[in-house]
Every structure is written in C-alpha cells, then in structure tokens.
Design a protein around this nucleic acid. Structure first.
Lengths: 104, 104
DNA sequence: TTATATTTGACGTTTTGTGTCAAGTTAAAA
DNA sequence: TTTTAACTTGACACAAAACGTCAAATATAA
C-alpha cells in the first residue's frame, strides 16, 4: 500500500523534477520535502494542493490519501479501530444532516 | 446524537455526584470537568478511563465515542469524508495485517 | 575528483493540549 | 432577601508536538 510520500516521490522522479524545484514551488525548504517523501514529516494542506498541481496528480485523490493516512495512523493501534470508524461514519452523517437543516 | 460530554453529565447527575467529587477522582480541577461536559474541552485518555470507572460506564464504549467524535469533527467538513473513511479502513486492515506478519 | 542531489540533525518558533486559579453567575435554602 | 453551594468563565502557565531554517554529511554520477 502506497503512502502519500511514496506516491509523490515516484511521480516527481517520473517527471524528472528535483526536490529543489518542487520544494520551491511549494515554498518550503527541500529538507522538508525530502522528509515528506520519506514519511518523516506530514505535508500541510497547502503542500498537498501544490503537490497535486505541480505533479499533475488528482487533488482530491491525494487529499483522501493524506487524510485517511493520518486517521489510520491515529487509530490503527486501537483494539476498537473498526468500531471507531463505524461510529465516526454515523456521527458524520448526523453532523451533515444537521448542517443541511440549519442551512434551510 | 449524544456527545461524550452529554453522556458524562447525564450519568454523573443520575448518580448524584458533584463536579468536585468526580474531578477529584480524575485528579483534575473541576473547571476542566465542567468544560469537558459542555464540549469546550477534550478529555485526555486518562480522563476517559477514570470517568468510565467512577461513572460505571463501559470503558471501551466511552473510548469509541471519544475517538470517533474526534475523527468526525476532524473530517465532517470535508467534501470527501466518506471516501476518507473507506480509505482509512483499508489502510488499517493493511497495517494490522503487517503487524501480524512482523510478529511471527 | 568534482559537482549535483539528497539526507540528516541541531536549532528555533508557533501551536496545541493539559492543567491551575480566582472571580463571576445561578439557583435553591434559610 | 440574604446566604450558600454548585457550576461556569476567562486569564494564565507549562510541556509536548508541529513546523520550519540552515548547514554539514552522505550519496550518486560525470
């Protein structure tokens, strides 16, 4: 299973771009990008957006990868991880239905 | 849909316990407990454990409520929240299967 | 060897999480 | 209505985590 870091590195290399070039586009130090690609640092939301742009990746896909990776790491070591996901799904449905109501 | 705070407050009152008493058991100031019950503050992991003990609530249930509440709040405003949950589930299965392998 | 690309670690700043304390509010009993 | 007990609120403190810079170390390749 590919991490965001692995996806980014693979695509960057396949496009023949250097860390320096991509990092400059993201407006961060190349050290950070190096760490992001090796999963030592988490990208920011803005990093994700810009990475999708410059690497011609689908922005939503990359975002989903990114957020789900974060959540998975947060709860993977919980006994009750799968119960948590189911409960979270219900809560989200509940929250969204309220937003709609309140928007009327 | 009941929040952890609401669950705690309801159970504490039904047991006739004061903020002061429960807070002392948790080893925190009653101001924090007051805020936890009104969702102004998140309980720590230790708070959850002790709350389950003193309020005679099921510890795992309360923990699931707590973690799923956090996750739901994190991603409820994302367009792609449901994609994120599905992806997270896959990643968690993958992580857990690796843990097993590495434990052999 | 020289040059270029990447990695690493020491460091500093900002944000977040967890808590205290004391003053303010509310509501019921005296 | 005054007093008292329970709860709420906001200012503050502190430690841990997140986020970034920079320069030196290490690869990699001409």
């Amino acid at each position: 299973m590919e991490t965001v870091g692995q996806i980014v590195r693979a695509k960057r290399e396949s496009l023949g771009l250097l860390l320096r070039q991509v990092a400059s586009y993201l407006d961060i130090d190349q050290a950070i990008l190096s760490k992001i690609e090796r999963n030592e640092r988490r990208p920011s939301r803005d990093n994700i957006t810009k990475l999708a742009e410059i690497l011609k990746l689908d922005k939503e896909d990359l975002l989903v990868q990114f957020i789900s990776e974060r959540i998975a790491n947060e709860i993977a070591d919980e006994e009750c991880a799968s119960k948590v996901l189911k409960a979270a799904e219900l809560k989200i449905m509940y929250i969204k239905s309220n937003v709609v109501k309140n928007d009327l």
